[in-house]
Measured scan of single mutants.
Amino acid sequence: TETYTFDSEDQAEEFAQRAQKKGYTVEKRKENGKFKVRVE
């Protein structure tokens, strides 16, 4: 499980979609103005 942090929602969304296409489970959340994407 890895967590990635992005400054913009667009970046987080793009990353999450790519990860989902590769078959990963993706969980997105906003925390302290940053966008976190957890991938497993």
Rank of each mutant, 00 (worst) to 15 (best):
Q17R: 12
E2T: 14
K36Y: 15
E2P: 08
R29L: 15
K28F: 14
E13I: 08
K22I: 09
E9F: 08
T5G: 03
E27L: 09
Q20T: 10
E27W: 11
E2A: 14
Y24S: 04
E13C: 06
E14L: 10
K34V: 11
N32C: 07
Q11E: 15
R18Y: 13
D7W: 06
Q11N: 05
F6R: 00
V39S: 01
R18H: 11
R29T: 15
E40D: 10
A12M: 09
S8V: 06
E13A: 07
E31V: 08
F35V: 06
E31F: 05
R38Q: 11
E14A: 12
T3D: 10
V39I: 13
T25I: 13
D10I: 11
T3Q: 06
E2G: 14
F15Q: 01
K34R: 08
K34P: 00
E14I: 09
R18E: 14
R18K: 11
A19S: 06
D10T: 10
E14M: 09
D10M: 10
K36E: 12
Y24L: 09
E27I: 13
E14Y: 07
T3F: 11
E13S: 07
D7Y: 06
N32D: 12
E13Q: 07
T25D: 07
G23L: 02
F35Q: 01
K28C: 12
K30D: 06
G23E: 02
K34I: 10
F15D: 01
S8T: 14
E9H: 06
T3Y: 11
R29P: 01
V37A: 00
E2S: 14
Q17L: 12
K22Y: 13
K30R: 10
F6I: 01
R29K: 12
Y4R: 05
V26K: 02
R18P: 01
R38K: 13
E13L: 08
Y24Q: 05
K22A: 14
Y4Q: 03
K28H: 09
E31L: 05
E31P: 00
A16Y: 09
R38G: 04
Q20V: 13
F6N: 00
K22P: 05
E40M: 14
F35I: 08
V39F: 04
F35K: 00
E2D: 11
G23Y: 03
E2V: 15
A16S: 07
F6C: 00
V37G: 00
T3K: 03
T5F: 11
G23S: 02
T3L: 08
Q17T: 11
Y4M: 04
N32M: 06
S8H: 09
R29Q: 10
R38A: 08
E40P: 04
T5N: 05
Q17G: 06
Y24G: 04
V37P: 01
T25S: 11
E14S: 08
G33W: 02
Q11W: 05
D10V: 10
E13P: 00
K36V: 15
E13G: 04
K28G: 03
Q20S: 09
G23T: 01
T3W: 15
Q17I: 12
Q20D: 05
V26I: 08
D7L: 07
G33R: 03
G33Y: 03
T5P: 02
D10P: 07
A16M: 13
A12P: 00
R38I: 15
Y4V: 04
E40I: 15
E13M: 07
S8K: 07
T5E: 13
E27C: 09
K30L: 12
T5H: 06
E2H: 15
V26G: 01
T1Y: 14
R29Y: 15
F15M: 03
K36H: 14
Y4A: 03
V37N: 00
K21S: 12
N32L: 06
E9A: 08
K21E: 14
K34L: 10
K36I: 15
A19P: 00
Q11H: 07
K30A: 11
E9R: 05
E31H: 06
D7V: 06
R29H: 13
D10F: 09
D7I: 06
E27K: 08
Q20M: 14
K30H: 11
E40K: 11
G23M: 02
R18N: 12
K28A: 06
E14N: 07
T25L: 13
K34T: 07
T3I: 13
T25M: 11
F6T: 00
E14D: 11
E40Q: 13
D10E: 14
A19I: 09
T3V: 12
T5I: 13
D10H: 09
G33I: 02
Q17W: 09
Y4E: 02
K36L: 15
Q11D: 13
Y24V: 04
S8Y: 10
S8C: 07
Q17A: 12
V39Q: 02
A12H: 01
R38S: 12
V39C: 04
F15P: 00
R29N: 09
E31D: 07
E31T: 04
A12R: 01
F6E: 00
K36W: 12
S8G: 05
D10K: 10
T25C: 08
F6A: 01
F15I: 02
A16N: 02
V39E: 00
V39D: 01
R18Q: 14
E2Q: 14
K30P: 07
E27R: 06
E27A: 08
V37I: 08
F15W: 05
T25W: 12
G33Q: 04
F35N: 02
V37F: 01
F35S: 02
F15V: 02
G33F: 03
F15K: 01
G23Q: 02
E2N: 14
G23C: 03
K28V: 15
E31N: 03
A16W: 04
Q20E: 12
E31Y: 04
F6Q: 00
E2I: 15
